[in-house]
Nucleic acid binder design. Structure first.
Length: 411
DNA sequence: TAGGCCATCTGGTCCT
DNA sequence: AGGACCAGATGGCCTA
């Protein structure tokens, strides 16, 4: 029975690992699965050989009524007598229980219960894997993502909550917030490591975050050297070449510096569909750092990878500007969030990059989007904040707001 | 080594 | 009845 379970591919197929596990240590996956199977086997074995709890006995006995009717009838009488508290012979001093009587576990019952339990275990595994998969997707859309240094589940949820809150505040106020304030909101309730990670992702190392220390914005190392993550060095200028993630534990600082010059551009990471699919080489523009913005801002140079853009449905409190509403007056009307894309020559990406890290060609909120705060001023170049209206593709609408806000902060 | 995080097993409960 | 969901227990892995 157990061997059947372990050799059953349908059951074993359920034992898959986190995507990152598979990606990070592919060679070990089979081994890991094997280990898991062994673990499962041990569990089953324990179930078979170890004693069950009284409750489990009840549960197990509840099935197979039809098959053991004779036994049931016989035992039922005893059970009722016992349940009635009739002070029958009580060998052990265990308290009498109401409810279903205990039934003898015949081999057939045990077999069936095992099968049922195995099926339930497999379902539970699948369920948890789905849950983890969803959590992984969530990790990818919160401001900080690393394949190698994954946020824990609880931190992911906390960050997501903070992120939603921060975005809501932005949408509510319709103003461009202070970056420090934004980071503070994001990091609220997060552990110190996660705070560092987020700060690093946002090109705002902890020291700057706390002191609003402003470094030389023209420096390619801006915010990259003092942070908790080492500077990659290889991607200081222009968009960084990392095709996989927005950030990796070893690349965090470098990735940030490289992608956005003075500001991190999540869009430059090919791995992140929500960003990259929309902004294409936007990261390159923002990532111009000291080298100027990339002219390929809208070229879609960055592939979204195998994954399609994550569907992000925005409704309720959120409103999006329709692409048809790009007329100048629209900006003055009641839509809450304007997405201004700079695609032409001399983009703000370039301007920002020339300033050592401006916005990647996007302005959120009120026109002129003033730079707030000292740290923010250091991160965002004033010259980069100009209202531009450009059409965006229809299929980008769902994610436009989301990405816009992200790009707004991550450039 | 303690603590955090995680996967899995397990039994209970609720729902269809 | 069976499945989904949940929470507790357990053990492994990793890191400070």
């Amino acid at each position: 029975m157990l061997t059947r379970l372990f050799s059953d591919p349908s059951l074993l197929s359920n034992v898959h690992r986190f995507p990152s596990w598979a990606e990070d240590s592919e060679g070990e996956e089979s081994k890991t699965q094997e280990e898991e199977s062994v673990r499962v086997g041990l569990g089953e074995d324990q179930l078979e050989h170890a004693g069950r709890t009284p409750s489990s006995d009840i549960a197990l006995d509840d099935e197979d009524n039809e098959d053991d009717e004779d036994d049931d009838d016989e035992e039922e009488g005893e059970g009722e007598e016992e349940a009635g508290g009739g002070g029958g012979d009580d060998d052990d001093d265990q308290p009498r229980k109401r409810g279903p009587k205990k039934r003898k576990m015949t081999p057939a019952r045990m077999e069936r219960s095992k099968v049922r339990r195995n099926k339930a275990n497999a379902r539970e595994r699948t369920r948890m894997h789905d849950l983890n998969s969803a959590l992984d997707n969530l990790r990818k859309v919160v401001p900080c993502y690393s394949k190698t240094q994954k946020l824990s589940k609880i931190e992911t949820l906390r960050l997501a909550k903070n992120y939603i809150w921060a975005l809501s505040e932005i949408l509510r106020s319709g103003k461009r917030p202070d970056l420090v304030q934004y980071v503070q909101t994001l990091c609220k309730g997060l552990s110190q490591p996660t705070t560092n990670l987020v700060a690093g992702c946002l090109q705002l190392n902890t020291r700057n975050f706390l002191t609003e220390h402003c470094q030389d914005p023209t420096s390619a190392r801006y915010h990259g050297s003092g942070g908790p993550y080492p500077s990659g060095g290889s991607s200081v200028h222009g968009y960084h070449p990392y095709p996989c993630s927005r950030l990796s534990s070893s690349q965090c600082g470098g990735a940030g510096v490289g992608s956005g010059g003075a500001g991190l551009s999540l869009r430059s990471h090919g791995y992140c569909p929500p960003y990259d699919s929309l902004y294409g080489a936007g990261g390159g523009g923002g990532g111009g750092g000291g080298g100027g913005g990339s002219p390929e801002y809208d070229s879609g140079e960055y592939e979204a990878g195998a994954s399609p853009p994550l569907p992000l449905y925005i409704n309720g409190n959120f409103s999006l500007r329709h692409q048809d509403s790009a007329s100048p007056d629209v900006a003055d009307r009641g839509y809450h969030y304007s997405m201004h894309y700079s695609t032409g020559p001399g983009t703000r990406a370039g301007a920002g990059a020339g300033a050592g890290g401006g916005h990647g060609g996007l302005v959120f909120g009120s026109r002129g989007g003033a730079v707030h705060g000292a740290a923010a001023a250091g991160v965002h170049a004033d010259g980069a904040v100009l209202p531009y209206h450009h059409d965006m593709h229809l299929h980008h609408e769902r994610t436009a707001l989301y990405e816009d806000v992200n790009a707004f902060f991550h450039n």
